[in-house]
Design a protein around this nucleic acid. Structure first.
Lengths: 336, 336
DNA sequence: GTGAAAGCGCTAACAT
DNA sequence: ATGTTAGCGCTTTCAC
């Protein structure tokens, strides 16, 4: 066993209370005893036991983060923002890979509760009623990142509809008239429906009719992008540009196009969504609607911790188009 | 506040000891009281406090993971293996993003200690003496993943020298004679020197002389791959293949070659290392020497937990070449 | 089969 | 300025 505060007290000839005060920077001791105690502490290599401490203050200085897949580029950037901010504030973070599995999420929620985390950050998944009930029952502060809910829970995300509208406008402004969309999971009320809405509005602004057959669905992943691109082009020989609801799907589309010997952006332009590393690494580098993922992660812990006194409110983060090389302007007069 | 074991005991008209026994599946109560207590527990929605529990058992059922960058593809796959295994074993994991920063690592080590984690997994960084001293002082079990140390600490990794030897042999067998190498950080005794050794040995087997100018260094990241490829080709117009020490660097090389209009694999073949998602997503898909990253993550927690009784030994994991489309066979007789 | 009570390592009154 | 002591919520002897 390691040393305890008692050992330190004994060796320094003071009471545990005094040691505790010194450890916590509370008033109530002379400079001399402080020095003495500090010296004994380093001598013994004493480290306070955060578990015992947590039992009393009801604070563990640790946060729980629930995300669909740690190895997913998207979530891992958010996680890294969370991690950095938490570290600055002296908090630790427990990661819980929910694997899009509701049962597993519930198990995690319980574990986090038992381990008395000070708050929970929930990333990018659909927030079920079941979760809501569990969390309100345990009275834990929570913030949603890149998702939102039907409940009064603060979230932090970009305005998806507006972001896609801008992304599609970007294409429209460059002369594209037949634009396809590779959307996310069909029916997803957070990341699919509003985005399709943005797509529609952009077309509408230019007086272009919306056609159902021009939007196909994927699941945000690479493989689904390949399939979606194939399906989209099969039904729409005329598209000159595709808006993709994630960089990974755009990478998939890119891959399909490459295999079909269709050049990007010469024959078809592509714009992605997220601005993750995959957009940078793609060939050609992808123009994409960027979300400030890292900042969103950082803000989420700030929000969570401030929340403790007085509800903090949700916030929309700005999106920004990262221009790279996957979009070509086409000259309308020549139809080229 | 939530309910405590005392509340349950009172409401069920038994002692806390009995409740505790039931909670922990210990003998010493009748089936009847068990039912009664269990019922009260669900009624109240009681959840045990793992902090209080941890104070007694000196077990927190949580692990600490130290890694250089959560958003790095490589580490995040390992992390996801760790996460899954930990979850199966009812452990939680605290992630610590060390950002290749020694000070930060030391801070984390201390935090993990104070929070009484049951063990530590250290991924892919150089393991400094400083860390060793801190960890032995706190008597925490630890395992190294994808790295090793000068100390008697179990590690789990692939045999880098052998892996690169196989990768380069793969190229040699396909007729390549002038092979460049984009290595990792110069001087890195874990992930660079042994790999260069493997490269040398492969050439040697075929009686090809090793040339210093054919190996250039990067830092395992995408951008460094771009620069390295440029440098390598500048000094070696004749290479027909490049072995890269990470998939990200290979993607960088790919990107550079694309910009230079040098076709892969027609003009230059490429093989990567790791077999992460970026190898799959590359255009063309990268042939790469794969490490079983996810499995390594899983094994590391198994190893860590078994370790508690009796030292467990290090293990080498098998590497395996994932064949995709970035390598072309060249016919030597025609010199093509 | 069940309960009382002594801690685990610490903090926070309350004394002095 | 410093010490004594009562817990925090739980597990674990030791009685009965």
């Amino acid at each position: 066993m390691s040393y305890t505060i008692k050992d330190v007290a004994k060796k320094a000839n003071v009471s545990v209370a005094t040691v505790s005060r010194i450890l916590n920077n509370l008033p109530g001791y002379s400079e001399k005893t402080k020095e003495k105690v500090l010296q004994v502490i380093t001598e013994m290599g004493y480290q306070p036991n955060a578990i015992a401490r947590g039992l009393i203050n009801k604070k563990t200085k640790t946060l729980g983060v629930l995300l669909p897949a740690v190895s997913d580029t998207f979530a891992s950037v958010v996680l890294s923002g969370i991690e950095d901010m938490a570290h600055d504030l002296d908090y630790s973070v427990m990661v819980c890979n929910t694997a899009k599995d509701g049962i597993r999420t519930m198990k995690y929620l319980q574990a986090l509760r038992e381990k008395q985390v000070d708050g929970i950050i929930f990333i990018s998944e659909f927030f079920k009623e079941e979760y809501y009930n569990a969390i309100t029952a345990m009275k834990l502060p929570i913030v949603l990142v890149s998702t939102k809910s039907a409940y009064d829970i603060p979230f932090i995300k970009v305005d998806d509809e507006k972001a896609v509208l801008d992304g599609v406008m970007y294409l429209l402004e460059r002369g594209h008239r037949s634009i396809g969309m590779i959307a996310g999971t069909k029916g997803d009320t957070i990341a699919t429906i509003p985005r399709i809405e943005g797509y529609k509005k952009a077309l509408n602004k230019q007086g272009i009719a919306f056609e159902t057959k021009k939007v196909v669905y994927g699941d945000f992943g690479f493989e689904s992008g390949i399939e979606a691109a194939e399906e989209l082009l099969y039904h729409n020989k005329d598209v000159t540009a595709i808006f993709c609801s994630s960089d990974e799907m755009a990478a998939g589309a890119l891959s399909y196009l490459y295999r079909m010997s269709i050049r990007v952006p010469d024959e078809i332009s592509l714009v992605g969504y997220d601005n993750t590393k995959v957009a940078e690494m793609a060939i050609p580098p992808l123009t994409t609607v960027g979300q400030p993922l890292y900042e969103m992660g950082k803000n989420s812990v700030r929000m969570l911790l401030e929340r403790e006194d007085g509800q903090s409110k949700s916030m929309f983060m700005p999106h920004k188009i990262a221009e790279r090389e996957s979009v070509k302007s086409i000259d309308q007069s020549t139809g080229e």
